[in-house]
């Protein structure tokens, strides 16, 4: 009798071996610890992805982003004249993902909290903030709203890490975090 032949006798009455019994108890305890780490982090941890999301359309999201750009634009950068916006702490910050750019650029203050809105105009994109290494999926038709608190001043990169066609690897932008004034 082995694993390739039918078991003989009443196999479900065969007593558990001590090695197996002990391991099952240990392994299950570890499984429970891992399970409860997730709700625990929602209560005591600071890095939780927001559940807040709304249905949207490219037109609606474009309009809201444009309104923010009109209000808080501080300068333009690169040949494409990408606007850089510096909205006040606590305000809503909109970021458009589209083939194959992020729009606009954002300048935030260190230690302040913002409500960041992410949505795609076309296909799926991936918001990947480097070198912080925060990675969030960006969908068309969904406006994902999260509060974010940059903790260190510096120049960050936003790259796309969801494959979005032939120029996917060119889709990159910046995020500035400046010392609080």
């Amino acid at each position: 009798m082995n694993a390739l032949t039918p078991p003989t006798g009443v196999w479900w009455k065969q007593p558990l071996d001590r090695v197996e019994g002990t391991w099952i108890v240990i392994a299950f305890a570890w499984c429970l610890i891992m399970f409860f780490m997730m709700p625990y982090w929602h209560v005591y941890g600071k890095q939780n992805l927001s559940n807040e999301a709304y249905r949207t359309t490219p037109e609606m999201f474009q309009a809201k982003t444009q309104a923010m750009v009109d209000k808080y634009k501080v300068r333009e950068e690169t040949d494409q004249k990408i606007p850089v916006v510096a909205p006040p702490a606590g305000s809503d910050v909109y970021l458009i993902a589209r083939l194959w750019s992020w729009w606009p650029m954002v300048e935030l203050e260190e230690g302040k909290t913002y409500r960041l809105h992410l949505a795609s105009m076309d296909w799926l994109h991936g918001f990947s903030l480097q070198p912080e290494n925060i990675n969030i999926q960006v969908h068309p038709g969904y406006e994902h709203v999260m509060t974010v608190t940059p903790t260190r001043a510096g120049t960050y990169s936003i790259i796309c890490n969801e494959y979005c066609g032939i120029n996917h690897h060119t889709m990159a932008s910046r995020m500035y975090v400046v010392k609080a004034k």
Binding site: M38, W41, Q47, G126, N133, I134, Q137, N161
Partner: peptide
């Protein structure tokens, strides 16, 4: 759930 944030799509 939360740890996924630091590796998703990398």
């Amino acid at each position: 759930e939360q740890l996924n944030l630091i590796i998703h799509n990398t």
